[in-house]
Design a protein around this nucleic acid. Sequence first.
DNA 1: AATCCTTTGAAGGGA
DNA 2: TCCCTTCAAAGGATT
Length: 384
Amino acid sequence: METMWVEMDDDLTVPDPNGPDLPQDFLQVWLKETVNQLPVPIYPWCNSNRMEPMGETIQRETKDQLNVLKWPQCNPNGPEFMVKTIKIETKDQLPVPEQPQCNPNGPEFMVETVKRETKDQLTENAEDCDPNIPNFLQALEALLGKTADQLPLPAKECDPNREDTLQAVLEELRRQPANCLPVPQELLCDFHPPPASTVPEEQCIDLLPPPFSAQMCNQPDQEQNYNVSAVMFPHCVQGNLFPVGTVNGEVVYAFPQESYIPAFVPTVPPPNNPPTSRRRKCSTQKNVNEKPYIKKPLNAFMLFRQEQRLKVVAELNVRDSAIVNTELGKRWAHLPMQEKNKYFQEADRLRDLHEQQYPEWSTKENYGRKRKRIRRKIPTPVAI
DNA sequence: AATCCTTTGAAGGGA
DNA sequence: TCCCTTCAAAGGATT
């Protein structure tokens, strides 16, 4: 993920990280900025950072091949969609709870990291993205009063039971103390600062510790107390500013450029996530000085297992994982290669993502941190 | 409370 | 290169 550095415009006051309230002036200034004046493309319909030339690396799908309603940020009147990599699965092949970005009412699911825009939105300048909505404030106002299911939220955040509107979200945001704003874990997890070479030297002075500044060029002072919050915008506006360091004592925020693109929710836990399995919980409690436990990415069978387990439990009416896994192993063996390939591809993607997030990590780091298994199976005794 | 069982695939190490 | 070991998930069974 690329990161755009926020220019510290004189008109934009940096929020006081220790301030008691959300800096309303800061937010107001932002809301009044026109799209092309905003330092980051927080306009969720646009992708001004598109790098690949149209027609080269982009596969085209006709509009009727895509479920328009699942991607409300797309212009349904556009002649066609541009899709990068896309996997289409029928609804009964995917468990809804495990694919929260999917629309359970849609005829089919879209999985994978997808960039999709209508052709008329593939423009270089943000202000050209939608000629009918010239500035960001108008875009926001156009959304006020809409119910949650009408907002152009990422599909994974759409909750038909939610009754709050964008106005309510804004009000709630304004009430939050600056240092209490929540930061979505998946964004922190996805956030990759730019390589050192892309950061101007003068901005590389004081960097915050991971996850804000993981793999940054400077080593942060671990003794320092960084109680700095991210500036979170309403979730219909998929842009958040993350504190990455300070310049001359002022907080510098960075924006993960692609965070507004609906993405497959990564299953890889963030670096400091507490372990979820009972076994791991016990292991890590033994030595708090150990490096944080980073789990292996799931392989293709594990993805298949995760998806099919409840189905098998229901069919066999057993919950014993040993029995369920034995059955899943048989079903995996009989699964057509075409079906298996979907899981292999997703496993590859997760492995690549894991490698990006933890470039220094190796599977051997987890060796020995689990109790050595003592097999129940005993070799058949040889008759004398 | 802690560990085993059970599956497949990926990865690492030793021969 | 081949073989072996370990670990990803997960919940009942076992120690």
